[in-house]
Design a protein around this nucleic acid. Structure first.
Lengths: 203, 203
DNA sequence: GTCTATAAGAAGATAGAC
DNA sequence: GTCTATCTTCTTATAGAC
């Protein structure tokens, strides 16, 4: 019922599907259920709507920087300090991360919008890299370092291990963003990847 | 001097930077050094220019499907049948693939255009997946299978190994597409990745 | 806050001279 | 094949009634 918020939702959906330049204010208005001129009572321009989405994105990112890394990992956080992580737990963590990326509505639309707009805006480029490279690698590195210290994992470079753990998840996610029908296939490969990762690195 | 060809070049450059919808025929014409109406003596519409680029892309892909996989690997193809692959050769192969993706002008512009347009066109989505997932994984899998048969590598699932070898290269490439200044950093991580990959999987 | 009417300008495309 | 002039349509945005 909050029109101002609904405009952002509709605009984000359209921007994530077509990109900013291919979306017309009339389409946004139509999705909201009003006429185009009425939009201008809420936002002063089309660019202003885009900026508001960016602002929401920044806020989410700052408030929940680690949220996406934690997804499905809470059990791990709790348990990791006192026992070895099982292979099944590692699988659950990887699948959880993958599924969150792929199915969380907000995450998914943001990512697609960033994907389309990343080359036209340096701030978006940086935001993208933070969310899908810097932060996940940082988090996973910390986790793997812990597992190494516990003696669960071989004493190899944890940041490289994090890259080798995370990059396949990311690559399979991009495939499913383009071709959603490949999710089952992707999940099977993903599980094999994690089990093999564990087999190779476990001490 | 071939105007028709130059139009495609300029258009591809602009499409790869801004996306189809944010490029105007006047900009293409300006890049070519003519006025917008003159474009229509060569192509019947803006969409027609885009289609011509796609056609060129399809032709390149069909004719040189394995080219990108082979880059820097010829030495390997020659030698792989009779001796073990050295870690340095593996590093050279990974860096070669990464550098080709990142610096080949045509490859780079195509990839960026595909990145921007992938969600608005199923054919582009499929082309992207073929070029940056299906084909590289297929090629690397074959290579790793060979190394396993030779007894150079552990007898693990070669397709999973291919994913674990290739995905970090791909992820680092996407980071550098967005933030070219991170290439040195990426190359350092990449080398560590490959050496660690080799250490874990070598027999 | 939403509407209709409309301004103002941009963008794709055509006509016709050279 | 390139140009200028022009058409048409689309798109953003504003004005002003309700």
């Amino acid at each position: 019922m909050d029109t101002k918020k609904k405009i952002l939702d509709v605009a984000l959906t359209l921007f994530s599907e077509k990109g900013y330049g291919n979306v017309y204010v009339g389409q946004i208005a139509e999705g909201v259920g009003i006429k185009a001129p009425s939009l201008y009572k809420h936002y002063k321009s089309k660019k202003d709507i885009f900026e508001a989405i960016l602002e929401e994105m920044r806020n989410r990112y700052n408030k929940e920087a680690s949220r996406l890394n934690m997804t499905g990992n809470d059990f791990l956080i709790d348990s990791k300090l006192y026992n070895n992580i099982s292979e099944d737990e590692l699988v659950k963590m990887g699948i959880g991360l993958f599924s969150f990326f792929l199915h969380d509505e907000y995450e998914c639309k943001f990512r697609k919008m960033l994907t389309i707009e990343q080359f036209s805006n340096e701030e978006l480029a940086e935001l993208f890299s933070n969310q899908y490279f810097n932060e996940p690698i940082k988090y996973q590195t910390g986790l793997l370092q812990l597992l190494i210290m516990q003696g669960c994992m071989k004493n190899e470079d944890a940041s490289v291990m994090a890259l080798q753990f995370f990059a396949p998840i990311y690559l399979l996610m991009t495939v499913c963003d383009r071709e959603p029908q490949r999710e089952v296939e992707a999940l099977q490969i993903l599980e094999k990847h994690i089990r093999q990762f564990n087999r190779m690195y476990k001490e």
